[in-house]
């Protein structure tokens, strides 16, 4: 079983959804971002989505873009990301890299897969890479035994839900709303519908929901029907506000309580 699937399954056995937290490497600097990731792990997150800074983050909203712009300008690159991967693995959570495709292609997809596996990474989430274009990554991740997480969206057809889930390993990233990343007051009903549709297309892979989750109450709502809850912009906002490791620890405690409140759907 893959690193991510194993952890999500363990959470399920505890009667809860998994908590996956996103932070980009390099905001406010590499060391501080890694320290924040470790703090999140210590406070109870199951996996860290380790963001590779990118100059043109097309699916991200203003909060994440503001932070990654700083990292891009500072020249943060894959070696820094791999350092974060090792730190998260050492702290006891599952590290999964989140990267737009070009930084991986530029680094070299085979080299990326080998180095990620060597650093203890579980795999990668690729928001602008669809399975149709992913032959190189699918081969490399198979070779290194890495998870590969593709996204589904409310606009995905049933056929694409199936083919995307079939190409995924670890979990499927269920993008809860049509739109960019960023905290929302309400997590759309579309999330529940999409989880149900994806589960019907492919019953045996974990489904984690992201886009818009910012607090424990929302996490509890999602945990009622999803296998995992992904929180990104809310963490980045804490970092942008300068609340650092203490801030992300407090947010994690709220979210970790949330994913335990709802219990797990049948």
């Amino acid at each position: 079983m893959s690193g991510l699937a194993e952890r999500i399954s363990a959470a399920k056995e505890e009667g809860r959804a998994a908590l996956i937290a996103y932070l980009p490497v390099g905001y406010p600097d590499v060391d501080a971002s890694i320290a924040a990731m470790v703090a999140i792990v210590e406070a109870g997150a199951d996996a860290i989505e380790i963001g590779v800074p990118y100059s043109d983050p097309g699916i991200d909203g203003p909060v994440i873009q503001e932070a990654v712009d700083v990292a891009v300008r500072a020249g943060v690159g894959m070696p820094d990301v791999l350092r974060a991967v090792r730190a998260v693995a050492d702290a006891g959570a599952v590290p999964v890299v989140m990267s737009y495709w070009n930084p991986i292609e530029r680094y070299g997809v085979d080299r990326f897969a080998a180095d990620l596996a060597a650093a203890g990474g579980a795999g990668a989430i690729t928001p602008d890479l669809i399975p149709d274009e992913a032959a190189g990554w699918i081969a490399a991740s198979d070779r290194e035994g890495l998870d590969r997480v593709f996204l589904v969206a409310p606009s995905s057809t049933d056929a694409r839900l199936r083919s995307t889930a079939d190409a995924s390993r670890g979990f499927v990233y269920v993008a809860s709303t049509m739109g960019v990343t960023g905290a929302r007051d309400e997590v759309s009903d579309a999330a529940q519908t999409l989880v149900a549709r994806t589960r019907e297309a492919r019953p045996d892979i974990a489904l984690c929901v992201g886009l818009g989750v910012s607090n424990g109450a929302q996490a509890a709502e999602l945990a009622a029907f999803a296998d995992g809850v992904i929180v990104g912009s809310a963490y980045v906002r804490v970092m942008l506000e300068g609340r650092g490791a203490d801030g992300v620890r407090a947010l994690t405690e709220d979210l970790a309580a949330g994913v335990r409140r709802a219990g797990v759907s049948a």
Partner: peptide, 20 residues
Amino acid sequence: SSGHFGAFGGRFVPEALIAA
């Protein structure tokens, strides 16, 4: 038929845009 000019082109976009 999938928009490739040799090694170039294609679709490197979020899944949300594929239907459109």
